[in-house]
Amino acid sequence: MTLLSIENLCVELEGPNGVCRLLDQVNLSLSKGQCLGLVGESGCGKSMTAMAIIGLLPQGMRAHGKILLNGEDLLKADEERLCQLRGRKVAMVFQEPMTALNPVVPIGRQVAEGLRLHLGLTRHEAETRASQTLARVGLPVERFALSLFPHQLSGGQRQRVVIAMALACGPEILVADEPTTALDVTVQAQILDLLADIIDEFGMGLVLITHDLGVVAETTDTMAVMYAGRLVEDGPTVEVFERMAHPYTRGLFAAMPSHSSEGSTTRSPLTTIPGRVPDALSRPAGCPFVTRCGFATDLCSRELPLMKTLGHRHNAACFNIAHVEEGS
């Protein structure tokens, strides 16, 4: 059952030099109990997509297209309706647990706040529920009193509080924007396991935004690769990993550091994708990746490649998929 369906989402920013398109024709869908991975390097529009889903785009940005949550178009909803949905149906986990919590409010009250707002619980009921939720994310009240302040917790513990806040009202969709980027590697694994357990347990959909392909491979059911505000490849995670069709996806994969299996002392330098993501104001006319692509032809710089179906729900936007696959 499709929970969230994003159709032709575009986000535009009106600036002094005209309209600048930050997201272009993004199509995504997410079913109940599934995890969708959104991958790409910084500035590719992953977080922008997340903010559009929760309806908190920065002022001055306009979104059009459709974001359907159980059939209701969030882009058409008014602010009052969005306030009802945020935290209740769609919840968000942010990247920086250090700054995402209010430093002067005890954690219990921060978790209970949404419960009182959306479910109309009394202070006492909300606190009971908050302590249950905190216990579920690994912060039992015996060791972590509700009266603790964020500065008394470590980064991983704070991220658990942020997750508890998001979970409190039992949302249908959880959007996690790089939830582990700011944490230690060992803590990262714990937090990802926690998120995976939770979507199993509560049957919610998870949109996991990350730049870590390893995380995507382990955690997600479907994935979408974004580049310069557009989707370049999407499909079931297993298939995308098996048959990476877009040169950018391949580049991202090649750029992951890997252990040499023989334990040799010589290390090969990290593979990189040359160049940078083009600025939103000066994107090339054709394929946005053309300036950094090893397979680029004349056609690529003239025309924008559209998403082509390659197999079971697997799509990529590239003119040279055949060449890319031969080249491997």
Partner: peptide
């Protein structure tokens, strides 16, 4: 501009509630 104000909004607080309950005291 702080992240926790955005968090409060993501919880479903209105602009004014996030302002008076979370921003002002800080």
């Amino acid at each position: 501009q702080e992240d926790f104000v955005r968090t409060a909004r993501a919880k479903g607080l209105s602009r004014n509630a996030a302002l008076w309950r979370h921003a002002v005291r800080n």
